[in-house]
Amino acid sequence: MILRRGILAVLGALIVLSVAALGYQAVHRDGAPWATDNPTQDARDVVMTQARAFMTTVNTYGPDLLDGSTMPSYRKDVEALVTAKFKADFEQNVPYAEATVAQSGLGRTTTVYATGVGDLDLERGRATVLVAGELTNSFPDKSSKDDATGSEARQSADPQPYRVEVTLVRQGGVWKVDDFTPVGQEAQQQSSQSADPSASATPTQEATP
Score class of each variant (00 low, 15 high):
residue 181 T to C: 00
residue 205 Q to A: 09
residue 32 A to P: 00
residue 41 Q to N: 08
residue 43 A to S: 13
residue 95 P to W: 03
residue 157 A to I: 01
residue 7 I to W: 11
residue 11 L to T: 05
residue 54 F to D: 02
residue 183 V to Y: 00
residue 205 Q to G: 13
residue 204 T to I: 07
residue 158 D to W: 06
residue 108 R to H: 10
residue 159 P to G: 00
residue 201 A to M: 10
residue 111 T to I: 06
residue 16 V to A: 14
residue 120 L to H: 11
residue 47 V to T: 05
residue 42 D to E: 07
residue 51 A to L: 00
residue 147 D to I: 07
residue 128 T to W: 02
residue 159 P to W: 02
residue 152 E to P: 01
residue 23 G to W: 04
residue 30 D to E: 14
residue 130 L to E: 13
residue 122 L to V: 11
residue 2 I to H: 15
residue 26 A to C: 06
residue 54 F to M: 00
residue 99 A to W: 03
residue 133 G to E: 11
residue 178 D to S: 07
residue 94 V to Q: 04
residue 197 P to V: 06
residue 100 T to F: 10
residue 96 Y to D: 12
residue 71 M to L: 09
residue 63 P to C: 02
residue 70 T to L: 00
residue 181 T to F: 00
residue 13 A to R: 04
residue 42 D to G: 05
residue 2 I to L: 15
residue 128 T to M: 03
residue 102 A to N: 10
residue 105 G to S: 02
residue 188 Q to A: 13
residue 188 Q to I: 07
residue 101 V to A: 06
residue 137 N to A: 13
residue 8 L to P: 08
residue 10 V to M: 02
residue 14 L to E: 10
residue 161 P to D: 06
residue 36 T to A: 15
residue 28 H to V: 07
residue 31 G to E: 13
residue 2 I to N: 15
residue 134 E to R: 14
residue 36 T to P: 09
residue 153 A to N: 15
residue 45 D to Y: 01
residue 130 L to C: 07
residue 10 V to Q: 03
residue 40 T to F: 10
residue 45 D to V: 02
residue 206 E to Q: 13
residue 94 V to T: 03
residue 204 T to C: 05
residue 78 V to R: 07
residue 40 T to P: 04
residue 29 R to W: 04
residue 52 R to H: 05
residue 171 Q to N: 03
residue 80 A to M: 02
residue 69 S to D: 10
residue 209 P to F: 12
residue 147 D to A: 12
residue 106 L to R: 07
residue 70 T to P: 00
residue 121 D to A: 03
residue 192 S to N: 13
residue 39 P to C: 13
residue 185 Q to I: 14
residue 72 P to H: 01
residue 64 D to N: 03
residue 36 T to E: 15
residue 84 A to L: 06
residue 22 L to D: 04
residue 99 A to S: 05
residue 147 D to F: 06
residue 137 N to K: 14
residue 1 M to G: 15
residue 12 G to E: 12
residue 182 P to C: 05
residue 4 R to A: 14
residue 3 L to V: 12
residue 100 T to Y: 12
residue 116 G to D: 14
residue 69 S to E: 11
residue 199 A to I: 06
residue 20 A to D: 11
residue 179 D to W: 04
residue 204 T to H: 09
residue 173 G to C: 02
residue 190 Q to F: 03
residue 6 G to E: 06
residue 32 A to R: 12
residue 175 W to E: 09
residue 49 T to H: 06
residue 33 P to Y: 12
residue 19 V to S: 02
residue 71 M to V: 10
residue 191 S to R: 10
residue 168 L to K: 07
residue 105 G to C: 04
residue 13 A to F: 08
residue 178 D to L: 00
residue 5 R to I: 09
residue 20 A to N: 15
residue 106 L to Q: 13
residue 90 F to K: 04
residue 175 W to N: 08
